[in-house]
């Protein structure tokens, strides 16, 4: 009986404690996990589902270094990377948490995740608004929506596993709006097999693109040279 009472009291305490967490505290809890990671190198598979692109599944290596350096390399092919992919790393978004106004937006009905909005204090910031759906109990961001000034909106969905203690997901689904795609026929000299035409116009319209990354392994805090991020391109 005593044990039951103690257990119930503990449960009530935990619940009260969770409810008491403000949005700021929640963000700090998330950030505390992410702050354990100074850099990482991750292996994984990247799958793209974009209306106008057909591409093989890519074997990738992802490099991250604090505060916001990120590089994705295709190990066996062309590294076709969505712009704004730096946002696949929550650590990069939260790198300077002090520069945001944090707003508590309640809970998501279905999942009970806490909704926290981050509004940049800097008016010229590229990020206009970030919305995080946080698993308060685990201190993990499960979903994030980011609206940028230049590159549209992004949505992230994350599933965690082995590396949850570092706030690193096993699977990330990155969704974004793709812009029109069309090249002049005079440039491509396409072969017309007589079967398209009906669907062509639809293919050019703005659609949602989806990139899925499934990580197989992380190497955390072993140091990554800066040269990795400057190979062949600027930061993405």
């Amino acid at each position: 009986m005593k044990r039951c009472v103690v257990f119930l009291l503990m449960m009530v305490f935990v619940q009260l404690n969770l409810k008491a967490q403000t949005a700021e505290e929640l963000i700090l809890k998330v950030k505390a996990k992410l702050d354990k990671v100074n850099d990482y190198e991750a292996k994984g598979k990247m799958k793209m589902n974009i209306t106008f692109i057909k591409a093989p599944i890519a074997t990738i290596k992802v490099y991250y270094k604090k505060p916001d350096q990120l590089r994705i390399n295709n190990e066996k092919g062309i590294s076709l990377i969505p712009k704004g992919s730096v946002n696949i790393n929550i650590g990069a978004i939260l790198s300077d948490a002090g520069s945001y106004d944090i707003i508590d937006a309640g809970k998501e009905d279905k999942t009970n995740f806490r909704i926290v909005r981050l509004l940049p204090k800097d008016e010229n910031s590229n990020v206009v608004l970030s919305t995080f759906y946080i698993d308060a109990e685990q201190g993990l961001v499960r979903k994030a929506k980011t609206t940028t000034r230049d590159n549209g909106s992004y949505e992230l969905e994350m599933a965690y596993g082995k590396y949850a203690e570092f706030g690193l997901p096993d699977k990330v689904v990155f969704s974004f709006n793709t812009k029109d795609y069309k090249l002049p026929k005079g440039v491509t000299f396409d072969y017309d097999d007589g079967s398209k035409k009906v669907t062509d116009k639809d293919k050019t319209k703005n659609r949602k693109g989806r990139v899925e990354i499934v990580y197989s392994a992380f190497v955390i805090n072993k140091g990554i040279p800066d040269s990795i991020f400057s190979q062949g391109s600027s930061k993405r």
Partner: peptide
């Protein structure tokens, strides 16, 4: 050699090496 890129009027194909 690397993966091959085929830019088309309404589509972009990448073929494995």
């Amino acid at each position: 050699t690397n993966q091959m890129v085929i830019p088309r009027e309404f589509e972009f194909n990448i073929i494995d090496t």
